[in-house]
Computed example of a mutant assay.
Amino acid sequence: MKKHWDIFIAFFRIAMLGYGGGPGSIPLIHKEVVDKYKWMSDEDFGDILALANTLPGPIATKLAGYIGYRVSGFWGMLNAILVTILPTIVLMIVLLTSLSSIKDLHWVNGMTAAVIPVVGVMLAVLTWQFFHKAVQGMGWLQTSMMSVVIFVLLYVAGVHPGILIGLLLVAALVKKDKSEQKTKQNVRVKKGS
Protein backbone atom coordinates (compact mmCIF):
# COMPACT_ATOMS: atom_id res chain seq x y z
CA MET A 1 0.00 0.00 0.00
CA LYS A 2 2.93 2.34 0.71
CA LYS A 3 4.16 1.97 -2.89
CA HIS A 4 0.76 3.01 -4.21
CA TRP A 5 0.72 6.02 -1.89
CA ASP A 6 4.24 6.97 -3.03
CA ILE A 7 3.19 6.65 -6.69
CA PHE A 8 0.12 8.78 -5.98
CA ILE A 9 2.09 11.52 -4.20
CA ALA A 10 4.92 11.56 -6.77
CA PHE A 11 2.65 11.87 -9.79
CA PHE A 12 0.24 14.23 -8.03
CA ARG A 13 3.13 16.63 -7.42
CA ILE A 14 4.15 16.28 -11.05
CA ALA A 15 0.59 16.93 -12.25
CA MET A 16 0.23 19.99 -10.03
CA LEU A 17 3.65 21.52 -10.79
CA GLY A 18 4.18 20.43 -14.41
CA TYR A 19 3.63 23.78 -16.09
CA GLY A 20 3.92 23.75 -19.85
CA GLY A 21 2.60 20.27 -20.53
CA GLY A 22 4.55 17.06 -20.98
CA PRO A 23 8.00 18.49 -21.80
CA GLY A 24 7.81 20.73 -18.74
CA SER A 25 6.93 17.69 -16.61
CA ILE A 26 9.92 15.59 -17.68
CA PRO A 27 12.40 17.18 -15.22
CA LEU A 28 9.83 16.83 -12.43
CA ILE A 29 9.27 13.15 -13.28
CA HIS A 30 13.05 12.65 -13.30
CA LYS A 31 13.38 14.33 -9.89
CA GLU A 32 10.65 12.19 -8.31
CA VAL A 33 11.47 8.86 -9.97
CA VAL A 34 15.28 8.93 -10.01
CA ASP A 35 16.34 11.30 -7.23
CA LYS A 36 13.61 11.08 -4.59
CA TYR A 37 12.16 7.54 -4.75
CA LYS A 38 15.07 5.88 -6.63
CA TRP A 39 12.73 3.66 -8.62
CA MET A 40 15.23 3.66 -11.49
CA SER A 41 18.65 4.93 -12.52
CA ASP A 42 19.46 7.88 -14.77
CA GLU A 43 20.29 5.46 -17.58
CA ASP A 44 16.96 3.65 -17.25
CA PHE A 45 15.09 6.95 -17.22
CA GLY A 46 16.95 8.09 -20.34
CA ASP A 47 16.07 4.85 -22.13
CA ILE A 48 12.41 5.11 -21.12
CA LEU A 49 12.27 8.76 -22.17
CA ALA A 50 13.79 7.94 -25.57
CA LEU A 51 11.32 5.12 -26.16
CA ALA A 52 8.35 7.19 -24.93
CA ASN A 53 9.29 9.95 -27.38
CA THR A 54 9.00 7.52 -30.29
CA LEU A 55 5.46 6.48 -29.35
CA PRO A 56 2.34 8.53 -30.06
CA GLY A 57 0.49 10.34 -27.28
CA PRO A 58 1.28 12.63 -24.36
CA ILE A 59 4.73 12.03 -22.88
CA ALA A 60 3.72 12.52 -19.24
CA THR A 61 1.03 9.83 -19.33
CA LYS A 62 3.29 7.39 -21.17
CA LEU A 63 6.04 7.87 -18.58
CA ALA A 64 3.52 7.66 -15.71
CA GLY A 65 2.04 4.45 -17.09
CA TYR A 66 5.36 2.70 -17.58
CA ILE A 67 6.87 3.85 -14.29
CA GLY A 68 3.72 2.97 -12.34
CA TYR A 69 3.71 -0.48 -13.95
CA ARG A 70 7.38 -1.01 -13.24
CA VAL A 71 7.01 -0.02 -9.58
CA SER A 72 3.75 -1.77 -8.74
CA GLY A 73 2.29 -3.65 -11.69
CA PHE A 74 -1.10 -3.00 -13.30
CA TRP A 75 -2.56 -1.15 -10.30
CA GLY A 76 0.52 1.04 -10.03
CA MET A 77 0.14 1.92 -13.71
CA LEU A 78 -3.53 2.77 -13.27
CA ASN A 79 -2.76 4.84 -10.16
CA ALA A 80 -0.01 6.82 -11.90
CA ILE A 81 -2.03 7.49 -15.06
CA LEU A 82 -5.17 8.57 -13.22
CA VAL A 83 -3.31 10.88 -10.85
CA THR A 84 -1.48 12.39 -13.82
CA ILE A 85 -4.68 13.05 -15.78
CA LEU A 86 -7.49 13.77 -13.30
CA PRO A 87 -6.09 16.82 -11.43
CA THR A 88 -5.36 18.51 -14.74
CA ILE A 89 -8.86 17.85 -16.03
CA VAL A 90 -10.44 19.23 -12.85
CA LEU A 91 -8.17 22.29 -12.88
CA MET A 92 -8.90 22.95 -16.56
CA ILE A 93 -12.63 22.92 -15.93
CA VAL A 94 -12.34 25.18 -12.87
CA LEU A 95 -9.80 27.57 -14.38
CA LEU A 96 -11.39 27.88 -17.81
CA THR A 97 -14.66 28.96 -16.23
CA SER A 98 -12.92 31.80 -14.39
CA LEU A 99 -9.96 32.53 -16.70
CA SER A 100 -11.91 34.59 -19.21
CA SER A 101 -12.60 37.20 -16.54
CA ILE A 102 -8.97 37.56 -15.34
CA LYS A 103 -6.80 36.70 -18.36
CA ASP A 104 -6.04 40.35 -19.16
CA LEU A 105 -4.91 41.27 -15.64
CA HIS A 106 -1.29 42.37 -15.43
CA TRP A 107 -0.32 39.96 -12.62
CA VAL A 108 -1.74 36.92 -14.51
CA ASN A 109 0.38 37.77 -17.57
CA GLY A 110 3.38 38.34 -15.30
CA MET A 111 2.92 34.96 -13.63
CA THR A 112 2.83 33.20 -16.98
CA ALA A 113 5.88 35.07 -18.23
CA ALA A 114 7.82 34.28 -15.03
CA VAL A 115 7.20 30.54 -15.20
CA ILE A 116 8.46 30.08 -18.76
CA PRO A 117 12.18 30.68 -17.94
CA VAL A 118 11.93 28.30 -14.97
CA VAL A 119 10.67 25.51 -17.23
CA GLY A 120 13.39 26.35 -19.76
CA VAL A 121 16.12 26.09 -17.11
CA MET A 122 14.71 22.78 -15.81
CA LEU A 123 14.81 21.35 -19.33
CA ALA A 124 18.34 22.71 -19.87
CA VAL A 125 19.56 21.06 -16.64
CA LEU A 126 18.03 17.73 -17.69
CA THR A 127 19.60 18.10 -21.15
CA TRP A 128 23.01 18.77 -19.59
CA GLN A 129 22.65 15.68 -17.36
CA PHE A 130 21.91 13.49 -20.40
CA PHE A 131 24.77 15.08 -22.37
CA HIS A 132 27.14 14.44 -19.45
CA LYS A 133 26.06 10.77 -19.30
CA ALA A 134 26.63 10.46 -23.04
CA VAL A 135 30.13 11.93 -22.66
CA GLN A 136 30.91 9.35 -19.97
CA GLY A 137 29.78 6.55 -22.27
CA MET A 138 31.08 7.72 -25.66
CA GLY A 139 33.60 10.47 -24.99
CA TRP A 140 33.57 14.19 -25.83
CA LEU A 141 34.37 13.94 -29.52
CA GLN A 142 31.76 11.34 -30.46
CA THR A 143 29.08 12.94 -28.25
CA SER A 144 29.75 16.40 -29.71
CA MET A 145 29.71 15.11 -33.27
CA MET A 146 26.47 13.20 -32.69
CA SER A 147 24.90 16.27 -31.08
CA VAL A 148 25.75 18.43 -34.08
CA VAL A 149 24.48 15.82 -36.56
CA ILE A 150 21.26 15.32 -34.57
CA PHE A 151 20.72 19.08 -34.33
CA VAL A 152 21.14 19.46 -38.09
CA LEU A 153 18.80 16.54 -38.81
CA LEU A 154 16.13 17.84 -36.42
CA TYR A 155 16.19 21.58 -37.08
CA VAL A 156 17.70 22.02 -40.52
CA ALA A 157 16.50 18.91 -42.37
CA GLY A 158 13.24 18.68 -40.39
CA VAL A 159 13.50 14.96 -39.59
CA HIS A 160 10.85 13.89 -37.09
CA PRO A 161 12.35 13.11 -33.63
CA GLY A 162 10.56 9.74 -33.50
CA ILE A 163 12.19 8.63 -36.75
CA LEU A 164 15.60 9.77 -35.54
CA ILE A 165 15.24 8.01 -32.18
CA GLY A 166 14.06 4.85 -33.93
CA LEU A 167 17.07 4.89 -36.27
CA LEU A 168 19.45 5.44 -33.36
CA LEU A 169 17.86 2.55 -31.42
CA VAL A 170 18.29 0.25 -34.44
CA ALA A 171 21.91 1.40 -34.85
CA ALA A 172 22.57 0.71 -31.15
CA LEU A 173 21.05 -2.78 -31.44
CA VAL A 174 23.15 -3.56 -34.53
CA LYS A 175 26.28 -2.29 -32.77
CA LYS A 176 25.46 -4.36 -29.67
CA ASP A 177 24.88 -7.47 -31.79
CA LYS A 178 28.22 -7.01 -33.58
CA SER A 179 29.94 -6.47 -30.22
CA GLU A 180 28.43 -9.66 -28.84
CA GLN A 181 29.51 -11.63 -31.93
CA LYS A 182 33.05 -10.28 -31.57
CA THR A 183 33.09 -11.26 -27.90
CA LYS A 184 31.94 -14.80 -28.77
CA GLN A 185 34.67 -15.06 -31.41
CA ASN A 186 37.30 -13.93 -28.88
CA VAL A 187 36.07 -16.55 -26.40
CA ARG A 188 36.30 -19.28 -29.06
CA VAL A 189 39.82 -18.17 -29.98
CA LYS A 190 40.90 -18.26 -26.33
CA LYS A 191 39.38 -21.71 -25.85
CA GLY A 192 41.17 -22.93 -28.97
CA SER A 193 44.55 -21.67 -27.68
Results as ranks from 00 to 15, higher is better:
1 M>R: 00
1 M>K: 01
3 K>C: 03
3 K>P: 02
4 H>N: 01
10 A>K: 05
12 F>V: 00
12 F>S: 02
15 A>E: 04
16 M>I: 15
17 L>T: 14
19 Y>A: 15
21 G>D: 14
24 G>H: 08
27 P>Y: 13
27 P>W: 14
28 L>N: 03
30 H>Y: 15
34 V>E: 10
35 D>G: 00
35 D>A: 06
37 Y>R: 08
39 W>I: 01
40 M>H: 01
40 M>K: 06
42 D>H: 10
42 D>G: 05
42 D>Q: 09
47 D>Y: 06
49 L>D: 06
50 A>Y: 11
61 T>G: 01
61 T>S: 12
61 T>V: 11
68 G>P: 03
69 Y>A: 06
69 Y>F: 13
69 Y>D: 00
72 S>R: 04
73 G>V: 10
73 G>M: 04
73 G>Y: 07
74 F>R: 13
75 W>M: 10
76 G>C: 02
76 G>I: 04
86 L>P: 04
87 P>A: 05
90 V>M: 14
91 L>M: 13
93 I>K: 14
94 V>W: 03
95 L>G: 11
98 S>T: 15
100 S>D: 14
100 S>E: 13
101 S>G: 07
102 I>G: 09
103 K>Y: 08
104 D>W: 03
105 L>Y: 00
107 W>Q: 06
109 N>C: 01
109 N>S: 09
110 G>C: 05
110 G>Q: 06
111 M>G: 15
113 A>G: 00
117 P>N: 08
127 T>M: 15
128 W>Y: 12
129 Q>I: 14
134 A>G: 09
135 V>L: 09
142 Q>F: 13
145 M>T: 09
147 S>E: 02
148 V>M: 10
148 V>E: 04
151 F>W: 15
151 F>Y: 15
155 Y>Q: 14
156 V>W: 13
157 A>M: 12
157 A>G: 01
158 G>W: 09
158 G>A: 08
159 V>R: 02
159 V>C: 11
162 G>S: 15
165 I>E: 00
166 G>E: 14
167 L>W: 11
168 L>H: 01
168 L>A: 07
169 L>Q: 02
171 A>W: 03
172 A>K: 10
173 L>M: 12
173 L>I: 06
176 K>S: 10
177 D>V: 14
177 D>W: 10
177 D>P: 01
179 S>W: 01
181 Q>H: 04
184 K>P: 00
188 R>G: 03
189 V>L: 11
191 K>L: 13
191 K>Q: 12
191 K>N: 07
192 G>M: 12
